[in-house]
Simulated scan of single mutants.
Amino acid sequence: MNTPVQDQESGPPAPDGAPRAARADRAVVVERPGVHRLVEVERAEPGPGEARVAVYAAGVCASDREVYAGTRAEGYVRYPVVPGHEWSGTVEAVGPGVDAALVGRKVVGEGFRACLVCDRCREGATSLCGGGYEETGFTRPGAFADRLVLPARLLHVLDDRADLRSAALLEPAAVVAAAVSAGEPRPGERVAVVGAGTLGLLAVQLLAAVSPAELLVVDPRVRRAERALSMGAGEVRDPSGAEELRGRYDLVVETAGAPTTAHDSCLLARRGGRVVLTGLPEPGARGIDPVLLTVGQLTVRSVFGAPSAAWAHAVRAFDAGLLAPAALITHELPLAGFAEAVALVGSGDPDVGKVLLRP
Rank of each mutant, 00 (worst) to 15 (best):
L229V: 01
L148S: 06
E50S: 03
A179L: 06
M1G: 09
A51Q: 04
P220V: 11
R223G: 15
V91K: 06
P281M: 08
G257T: 08
G257F: 05
C121S: 02
M231L: 15
E92M: 02
A58W: 04
L322Q: 15
A269Y: 06
V275E: 09
L154S: 10
G124V: 12
V175A: 12
A233H: 04
V291P: 00
E92R: 02
A44H: 04
P259M: 10
V107D: 06
V180T: 05
A285M: 00
V217T: 09
R153E: 09
L322H: 14
A69H: 11
S211M: 01
G49D: 07
E42S: 14
S347F: 08
E45G: 12
C121P: 05
E235C: 13
L128V: 01
F318D: 05
V342Q: 11
G305M: 09
A24G: 13
R270C: 08
P281F: 09
G337R: 05
S181I: 00
D7W: 02
E42A: 15
E86H: 10
E184W: 00
V103Q: 11
H313I: 00
V67L: 14
L323G: 02
D25S: 06
S211P: 00
G305N: 10
A178T: 01
H36C: 13
P151Y: 04
S211W: 13
C61W: 05
E110R: 11
V291I: 12
R23S: 15
T278R: 07
A306N: 03
D16L: 07
V175H: 01
G348R: 13
A177D: 02
A310Q: 03
G49T: 04
R52K: 10
P325N: 11
A69K: 10
S240T: 12
L292I: 04
Y56C: 10
G109Y: 03
E214S: 10
G200D: 02
V180P: 04
P307N: 14
P19S: 02
P46W: 06
G17D: 10
R274Y: 07
V275N: 07
V210R: 15
V217I: 11
V5Y: 02
G197E: 11
R147H: 15
L323E: 04
V77L: 08
R186C: 02
T3Q: 14
H156V: 04
G296K: 06
V149G: 05
V355M: 03
E189P: 01
D99M: 01
V29G: 12
T126I: 00
G142K: 07
P212N: 14
V29T: 12
A326I: 02
E184F: 01
V355T: 05
R248P: 01
G272Q: 03
A309H: 08
G109N: 04
V149L: 08
Y79K: 06
S230K: 09
A178K: 06
A167E: 02
C121Q: 03
L356T: 03
R78C: 07
G132M: 10
N2H: 12
H263N: 15
A320E: 15
A203P: 09
A258E: 11
